[in-house]
Amino acid sequence: MGYDQHSVSQWVLEACSGNEASFNRLMDTFYKSIFRMIFYRIQSQMDAEDITQEVFLQAFNHLGTLQSPDRFKSWLFQIALNKVRDFFRKKRLRSLFQALPEKMDVEDERSEMHHHPEALENLEKADFWKVVNSLLTKLSSKEREVFTMRFLDHLSIREISNVMNKRESTIKTFLYRAMVKIKKDPSFQTLMRETL
């Protein structure tokens, strides 16, 4: 990612004292990664867009509660993770009152594949997310979260430990277990064989 930690901390301090241009710089720097991070977890573009906006609004209004500007990225991911949890909580509640469960975008893409010119790419995309989802469901919730943060969100061990409020040694243990399970999974090996 094209930013250095010193600039981020500086923008955070300036944004804290009401400089909107600095907050916009922070937003430009992290918008894509926060959007993707949310999409990876909920796999719906529209909902991911809504939640990303909510994350930045919350960050904007509560920037003063951030204890250290160096932790901005972890703090932002923490807000995003809480928003994702809220989303699933509401979704679960909604599903109690609905006869048919909502389909995910990935599933929709599979069913509409034949009507699009980029059908092949959509098929690849749908298959990829199907494999990823099946791999992640074989992990415990903690292993899944740590693994996703490390390899999909590209967070460092320290950043993950800040986001999850857990010791780095604990994060390493979860990550190790997740990597061993995924590496040994036949669908991961097939995906790698076909892609590499």
Binding site: F35, Q45, A48, T52, F60, K125, F188, M192, T195, L196
Partner: peptide, 26 residues
């Protein structure tokens, strides 16, 4: 390389946000 590839593919197969970045008065 394999684990990094998983991350790169995820990035490749994730959509781009089409919505303009919201800029709100504080």
């Amino acid at each position: 390389e394999e684990f990094a590839l998983l991350g790169n593919l995820a990035e490749k197969f994730a959509p781009e946000s089409k919505r303009p970045v919201l800029r709100k008065k504080r």
